[in-house]
Structures are given as C-alpha cells and as structure tokens.
C-alpha cells in the first residue's frame, strides 16, 4: 500500500506538472506557473484524500533527489560559455558579492522589523541560495534547516514572479544584468526563468547561483555573526 501511494504520488506529480505546463503555456498568467499550480493541486488532493506528506514524499523524494545531478549539470552551460564568463568575471564577482551581502543583511533586518522569533529569523537569513547550501548555512547559524528549505522554495517562487516586473520597470537590458539578478534573487527557479529569456541569460544565472552559494557560505559564517551582534547591541543598550 505504501509502495502504491509512493508510485501514484510520483506519477501523479509528474502528470499534474505537465498539465500545469500546458495550462501555463496557453494562458500565460504568472500565478498559473507550474511551480505554483502543481503544489496547490497536489496539496488539495493530499488534504481531500487525507494522505500525510510523509507517505506522499516516499514517491516525491525521487524527484527532489534529482536536484543533486541537476546541480552538477550546471557545469555544462558554464563550460560552454566559459570564454564569455571569464570576460565578465569582475562584474559577476562584484554584483554577486553585493547581492549576497544585501540578501543576508536585509533578510535579517526585515525579520527584526516585523518581529519574527529567533528561529524564523535565522532560518530566513540563508534563503537566497540553492537549497542544500541554504540548509547547511541555516544549521551553522542556528536556524532550522527544514524551515529554511521552505523559505528557499518561497524565495524562488516569489523571485521568479517579481523579477520580470523589476526587469521591465527598471529597464534592465543587458543579458548579464537579467541573468545575474535572476540567479541571485531566485536561484534554481530564477535560472529556469532566465533560460526562458535566452541561453546567455540562463548561463549568467547559473554562474550567479554557484557564486552566490560560495560567497554566502563565507559571508554568513564570518561577517553575519559580527553584524548580528552589532545590530543587537545597538538596539538593546
């Protein structure tokens, strides 16, 4: 029975995903994107049939597992466009270092501002980087890795929705700006969006994701504790 539920969960998720893709292609509303529609439909089915997430995920985790080789696969677009990336090396490093620093500090400050507890705040800080790394950082700075995984997911979904609006309002024209902001602001889902813009945008987004991950590990384990202590001590004299 457990095996059957896992099997149906796996095939069902894939089927609903491709169904959502068709609907999205037909109507084109951002909120109908498969990354939103599929989870909503599956959650409704789980609630109606009373299936616990653990039973669903026995099948679903097969898909999550593919994120591992998919991350390795980013080596291919990076390799193919390496000459170009080398030319943009300084621009990439500076933009992503600034982006990562802004991500960490603004998540922390906004979380303080709206009054979230310490666990939620620390789980939000690493939300801008790809899931496995964000979960590791979360553990290192005292957050909850599971909560972080959900926040990373939410960041990806919302970032993918917000980015095209920001690109239009701010007139970002260069493929490097579009790709880097998508990879920095919405990691994997952003990169998949960037490939919709074009191969070049996608490549910049892939490299942004990788660089952001590495820089965030350094920033959140070295500078973030200092920054946190500084903010807390100036707030509570």
């Amino acid at each position: 029975m457990t095996f059957l539920i896992a099997f149906i969960s796996l095939l069902g998720t894939i089927a609903i995903f491709y169904g959502s893709k068709t609907i999205y292609a037909k109507f084109g509303f951002a909120w109908l994107s498969p990354i939103i529609l599929t989870p909503v439909v599956v959650i409704l089915i789980l609630l109606v049939t009373g299936t616990p997430y653990e039973k669903y995920n026995a099948g679903g985790s097969i898909l999550s597992n593919l994120l591992g080789p998919a991350t390795v696969a980013f080596a291919v677009p990076i390799y193919k466009n390496f000459v170009l990336l080398k030319k943009y090396a300084i621009e990439i490093m500076v933009s992503i270092t600034v982006g990562s620093a802004v991500a960490i500090t603004s998540s922390f400050l906004l979380a303080l501002l709206v009054g979230l507890n310490e666990e939620l705040t620390h789980s939000l800080v690493p939300r801008s980087v790809t899931t496995p790394i964000a979960m590791d950082i979360s553990t290192m700075i005292g957050g909850s890795p599971t909560l972080t995984a959900i926040f990373v997911m939410t960041t990806g979904i919302l970032g993918g929705l917000l980015a095209p609006m920001l690109i239009r309002t701010c007139h970002f024209n260069t493929p490097s700006a579009k790709g880097l902001m998508l990879g920095m602001g919405a990691h994997g889902t952003g990169t998949s969006k960037a490939f919709e813009f074009g191969e070049l945008e996608g490549t910049f987004s892939s490299i942004a994701m990788v660089v952001a991950a590495l820089i965030s590990i350094v920033l959140s384990t070295t500078l973030f504790p200092v920054f946190e202590q500084f903010v807390m001590s100036s707030l509570l004299p």
Binding site: V94, S95, V102, A111, G159, C170, F172, A177, M181, M184
Partner: peptide
C-alpha cells in the same frame, strides 16, 4: 520579509551589473 528582501537583492544585483555593462 521574502518579498521585501527579494526586491532589494534583485535591484542591487541588477543595477550593479547594468552599471558595469
């Protein structure tokens, strides 16, 4: 928090890259 921080992050990264461009 995610929306607010997300917008700031993308603007900072995007403007930085555009400026270089």
């Amino acid at each position: 928090v995610i929306v607010g921080s997300g917008i700031v992050v993308m603007l900072a990264t995007g403007y930085m890259a555009e400026w270089f461009g």
